[in-house]
Design a binder for these strands. Structure first.
Lengths: 219, 219
DNA sequence: TCTTTACTAGGTATTACTACCTAACTATTT
DNA sequence: AAATAGTTAGGTAGTAATACCTAGTAAAGA
């Protein structure tokens, strides 16, 4: 076992978040650590892409919900074009679909916004070394349902139906919109509920909101 | 016009937020300003009450959704017991009901979490002088519907019913829970929909989420 | 080729919700 | 004392959603 004790270079970090408050707070928190340097900030996915190519940071702290391009899509492009740059998702969304999408996109870790700055620091250190880091609740989620979610995922058609349902349209309305029989719509509703193990319409609406099919205002 | 140019005492601030990240970021941002000093932090409403009495800060930056006691209730008690302490609500919720509740509870201002640290600074300065400060979108909301919301507000009973409805319970279930006839529950549902001008159950669920009656996970 | 999956659609019956209506009791306000 | 608002509850009828069932077609994969 050889220890590498030479004075380490600072870990360069790019912050990507559209909320100035979060950005400011985060860079202030990270300024406390000598071995980390925030070398840039970006306000959306497109911006992140440009800054990442220009600055080639070691780690990108990436928010998910942003204007122009979301963090997952940006992560996918960045991890493909810049394999040496690690992406650490930093968000308040803790739904399993987001987590799975992030992993699929090549993220090295997933940290929730309500964790301590110490954990963010350790997560940055971990992914820099090529390891992964997931917040405890996320790790637990991955343990509990590593493949179940994948298998039970909704088809594209079902997602369309569900988004209409969650927007308040009746089966008849949806049938007209999609030009199919309302019996078909009802069949899809049954399948969706069975797949998600959900019984009430209210739970469907919350599922749709929590998984990004609609936003809180109703798409 | 007399200018008061003596070296001002620092404005003492108490931060109340259950997210360590927000707390850390905020105190780091405010540390930049010489005339502001964060003299304490609290993690929930109860904690805020104790710290406020002990530290008697000039300004309290108060989050709304917290464990044990929410920010609105804490604000009501604090503004009553400590009239010299100004409360500035600091939250991501921008629903008109929250804003009205906050004003009712005696808050001097309402700042959204996605604003810049400069605005938070100016808001703190403003409320210290006895003025008020509302984020631009909040101010616009207050202009547009100063009284409409008050008139259309749901009664406590209706809010209880709505929260159950949004959690996915049927009228029968709710009737059993509250030990009333399910016809009464249905009557309440009719009144709620009429008041809110809402037709679908899905819209009711989203309203409940957006107005804090339930959270996205379903209370 | 056979199987599976997704999407489609219908039959029948039950349950849940909604739209109208009326109306009693209580507490508060004018 | 009268009016108002909130909570309670029922009648009747219609619409929407759900729970069972079967079943065809098209596309992808073994």
């Amino acid at each position: 076992m050889i220890h590498d004790n030479k004075p380490q270079e600072k870990i360069s970090v790019l912050l990507v978040d559209d909320h100035p408050m979060v950005q400011g707070g985060l860079s202030a928190c990270l300024a406390y650590y000598d071995d980390i340097e925030v070398i840039g900030v970006a306000h959306d996915g497109k911006d992140a892409l440009n800054k990442a190519k220009e600055l080639k940071p070691n780690v990108i702290l990436m928010d998910v919900s942003m204007p122009l391009m979301n963090g997952i899509d940006a992560t996918e492009i960045i991890t493909e074009q810049l394999p040496d740059t690690k992406v650490l998702i930093f968000t308040m969304h803790n739904s399993s679909e987001f987590v799975h999408s992030a992993i699929q996109a090549g993220a090295s870790g997933y940290v929730l916004k309500d964790t301590s700055s110490e954990e963010v620091y350790f997560a940055i250190k971990a992914v820099t070394k090529g390891n992964t880091h997931f917040s405890s609740s996320i790790a637990k989620m991955l343990q509990e349902s590593p493949l179940k979610i994948e298998n039970d995922k909704l088809t594209t058609r079902e997602q369309v139906i569900l988004s209409f349902v969650a927007q308040g349209f009746s089966s008849k309305d949806i049938a007209k919109k999609l030009d199919i029989s309302f019996r078909t719509v009802e069949a899809h509703r049954r399948n969706i509920k069975a797949k998600l193990n959900i019984e009430s319409l209210a739970d469907l609406v919350r599922f749709a909101i929590n998984h990004g099919l609609i936003n809180k205002e109703g798409e």
